[in-house]
Computed example of a mutant assay.
Amino acid sequence: MARVDYFHDPNAPKANSLRPAVSVFVQDDAGRVLMIRRTDNDRYAIPGGQQEVGETLAQAAVREVQEETGVDVEVTELVGLYSNPAHVIAYDDGEVRQEFSICFRARLLGGKLRTSSESKEVHWVSRDQLNELNIHPSIRLRLEHGYENRAMPYFT
């Protein structure tokens, strides 16, 4: 399903849904961050997706990373809570979702990088390479907060 992100756009459609989602900031031993190139909007992002019925937020984070990248992780901390009503995501089925994402930090356990139906590329990316990638501002904010390693989680 295709999607279009609107961020502080006065012409954005009005949100008609709100669903819990997770995103995950994972670094390898070299300090590189795990990034995917999404199939639905062709942008780079940290792994993540919707929480499913019957799972905790942490379980959703672990599952999404595994599904999208082939990597196994353990959730260790909360990076932040992102609920900006000025960020809406329009899907081609008519759903327009207000951003509501919980971003976790996770520790790499193992696995082998691979793509999926949601990720056409999966890479470990150094911080200085991030500016070369097409990354939505909301994901750049999560990356910034992940690198800051704040004492307290960010929230909107």
Rank of each mutant, 00 (worst) to 15 (best):
T76A: 01
R19E: 14
I89S: 02
C103W: 04
T39M: 04
D40N: 06
I36C: 06
L108K: 04
E144T: 13
K112A: 13
E55A: 07
E55T: 09
Y154C: 01
Y44E: 02
G110F: 06
P13V: 02
K120C: 15
L18K: 14
C103M: 07
H8L: 13
Q98S: 14
D72L: 07
Y6R: 00
Q51V: 14
N16I: 01
L108P: 02
V62T: 10
R127C: 06
I139D: 09
S126G: 11
V125E: 09
N149D: 12
R105G: 10
M35A: 09
T56G: 01
I135P: 12
V62A: 06
K112W: 04
L141Y: 02
Q98V: 04
A151H: 01
F100C: 14
V24N: 03
K14W: 14
Y44H: 10
D92H: 04
T56V: 03
M35H: 08
L81G: 13
Q129E: 14
P153D: 05
R19A: 11
H8E: 11
F104P: 02
E95P: 05
I135W: 07
I102M: 13
A60L: 10
S126K: 12
R107A: 00
N149I: 03
R32D: 10
T69R: 03
L143M: 12
L81W: 15
I135L: 13
R19G: 08
G110T: 07
E144I: 14
V88Q: 02
A45P: 06
E74W: 01
H136D: 12
G146A: 10
P47M: 08
L57W: 13
A106M: 05
W124M: 11
S116R: 05
N84G: 04
G94D: 03
R3H: 13
V24Q: 03
D42F: 05
